[in-house]
Nucleic acid binder design. Structure first.
Length: 592
DNA sequence: GCCGTTTTCGGCCCGACTGTTTTCAGTCG
């Protein structure tokens, strides 16, 4: 069972409890939802935790839920869940996937109209709404009947939060809205917050905070956005719209004096905020987007904060970088003033996974820009050294000698360009396939033309974990192989990536002076933040590369750095932060 | 059901908005 399926199962238990007796099960509901969230956000298979007897390491999973999950893995079923879910038709759990459908509404509609077929429940409900049968129900009306129809329609079309965007796409939409908002004379400041500010790999909706003394005017301006599809909701200080393309934008306004608490609130994550608010409660304080209320003093005013720093400071906390606001230990460390100093874009001295358009007759895609163009871009980015890593010449279409000659020609081209340009150093690398056998797709004579090789998997992804781990380690074992590129092979919104035994891979990298790549390509972002954090804790070195196939893509470095930051990586964990000489020491096998 | 800087017992975030209501329940983030 996948993490997603297990998460859904726990969420269903919470839903069932909510329907049966929300008051009685209040805290179990929260606990099950928390556990479900935690599992969904975990990029490591739960089955692996189970096999290692470490289910309880997952936050939100205690003795009770762990027991249930162990039963699930051992027998494929959980008696307690069967009991909890008893009496709730399966179609309820289908309806609840539609935004604006919660437990109560879903159950009520299923019961009222006997919608017992989970496969057709959405279609059936639509028919009933069209026949005007919902409006007359007590607690419903004309408006809610229309809303139900529209919610079903939008769900089918994948609008709103039902599909997630990759970071640059979300950033582009957000920038357009910000530019528009800034045209209002009532605007003092506007910022993109939520998961986009935290640099989560995929974004559900776009959250924007505005500082203004005239919120009504801002809201009016916001809902007049020319590319609007419809207004989802609109109040006095917040509003949500759907823009063309089906993306949801949430807006919230506070006066400039309270902008700090709004920034904090709307950046999240939800779990970080809950942790902060529980901490505040223990001090007799209540937090919200409006500011801080002192609960010990009767009818005291809410204290306002114009900056996030002052807001955190009042709680006795160090300001927390948005990328690590996930309640995974950052709150505890910020109390002690012991947050790590995370790596920054300005620490990056080079990019080592670049594909030029040099006709190397590769196994996979060629780049779009010349070596010269990419070097010029690297100079603009103030890099001191870079590396070209085109794919190896296709092994099936060339003899060994032909491959050798192609690589030599590429190297000569680099030397030729460098002879007229001394402002940057350029390493001669290649990205080489690790064949299913674990062998590299190039012989030693050709490999010796390189400063080092980046190795990666580009075929036969479906190997099991043990075999894939063996394949990767064998590939990395070649003395010229120094970096494992896009280590899981995941493609966001497309495929999950293969499984590796990370303990083994980490150990091998550490003992043999190899590095794991953090690939900054926006649909890869591979490694995940979670695995980066494990690698950091085991002192495995990493290198952030853009995998650019065009010079403008070299600006994607910021996304790779963001993943490193989300994984709590510091400058010392990231090889790109080294100067040329130190870097070459590492290349040649020296300890750092 | 989970969790720990006052706690292994006794807590558990906070507010906005909507529709159907005359004061609130449901949903969302």
């Amino acid at each position: 069972m996948s993490n997603e399926q297990i998460s859904k199962l726990l969420r269903n238990v919470a839903t069932a409890y909510t329907i049966k007796d929300e008051a009685k099960f209040r805290f179990q509901i929260i606990a099950y939802q928390k556990a479900a969230d935690s599992i969904l956000n975990n990029s490591i298979e739960l089955l692996d935790y189970y096999k290692d007897g470490k289910l309880q390491d997952i936050p939100g999973i205690g003795v009770s839920i762990r027991g249930h999950l162990e039963e699930l893995f051992a027998t494929g079923n959980v008696k307690y869940f069967d009991w909890a879910l008893k009496g709730i038709p399966e179609s309820v759990f289908v309806l609840i996937e539609i935004p604006s459908f919660g437990p109560k509404k879903s159950y009520r509609l299923v019961k009222e109209f006997k919608l017992t077929n989970p496969k057709t429940v959405i279609k059936d409900l639509k028919k009933i709404a069209i026949k005007n049968k919902i409006a007359s129900l007590e607690g419903f009306g004309e408006k809610s009947q229309k809303d139900i129809l529209r919610a079903i329609e939008e769900f089918r079309e994948g609008k709103g939060k039902t599909t997630r965007m990759v970071l640059p796409f979300a950033a582009e939409i957000s920038d357009k809205i910000l530019t528009y908002l800034r045209k209002s004379e009532h605007m003092v400041d506007a910022r993109t917050l939520g998961s986009l500010r935290r640099m989560v790999p995929t974004i559900g909706d776009i959250d924007i905070a505005v500082a203004s003394n005239n919120p009504e005017k801002i809201i009016e301006h916001f809902i007049s956005y020319p590319y609007i599809d419809r207004i989802i909701e609109k109040g006095s200080i917040s509003a949500s719209i759907l823009v063309s393309g089906g993306r949801q934008i949430d807006l919230m306004v506070q006066p400039p004096n309270a902008f700090g608490s709004l920034l904090q609130h709307f950046t999240g994550s939800k779990n970080h905020n809950i942790a902060l608010r529980e901490l505040a409660l223990r001090k007799g304080l209540s937090l919200s987007e409006k500011g801080i209320k002192n609960l010990k003093m009767k009818n005291s005013k809410i204290l306002q904060y114009s900056s996030e720093e002052s807001f955190y400071k009042t709680l006795g906390l160090e300001w927390v970088p948005p990328e690590i606001r996930e309640n995974t230990g950052e709150v505890e460390l910020s109390i002690k003033n012991k947050l790590p100093k995370l790596v920054e874009v300005s620490d990056i001295n080079g990019d080592f996974h670049l594909h030029s358009n040099f006709p190397i007759e590769p196994s996979h895609d060629l780049g779009n820009n010349t070596i010269d163009e990419m070097i010029k871009k690297a100079i603009l980015l103030k890099y001191s050294h870079i590396g070209f890593s085109e794919h190896n010449p296709s092994i099936s279409k060339h003899t060994k000698d032909q491959m050798y000659n192609l690589i030599k020609a590429r190297n000569d081209q680099i030397d030729h360009i460098l002879s007229g340009n001394k402002s940057i150093r350029v390493l001669k690398l290649l990205e080489i396939d690790i064949l299913p056998s674990g062998e590299l797709a190039m012989d030693d004579r050709s490999l010796n033309l390189l400063d080092f090789a980046i190795v990666s998997i580009h075929s036969v992804f479906s190997m099991d974990k043990t075999k894939m781990t063996h394949r990767v380690i064998k590939g990395l074992s070649h003395p010229k192989a120094k970096v494992l590129a896009h280590p899981t092979g995941r493609l966001l919104n497309e495929r999950p990536g293969y499984d590796l035994d990370w303990e083994k891979v980490f150990k091998f990298c550490k003992e043999n002076n190899k590095a794991l790549e953090i690939n900054a390509w926006p649909t890869r972002l591979d490694l995940s933040d979670q695995i980066i954090r494990q690698a950091v804790s085991q002192k495995v070195k990493m290198i952030i590369n853009t995998d650019s196939h065009a010079s403008y893509q070299m600006e994607n470095m910021k996304y790779g750095v963001a993943m490193a930051r989300r994984g709590w990586a510091q400058k010392g964990d990231i090889l790109n932060s080294l100067g040329y000489n130190k870097f070459m020491e590492w290349v040649k096998g020296g300890e750092l």
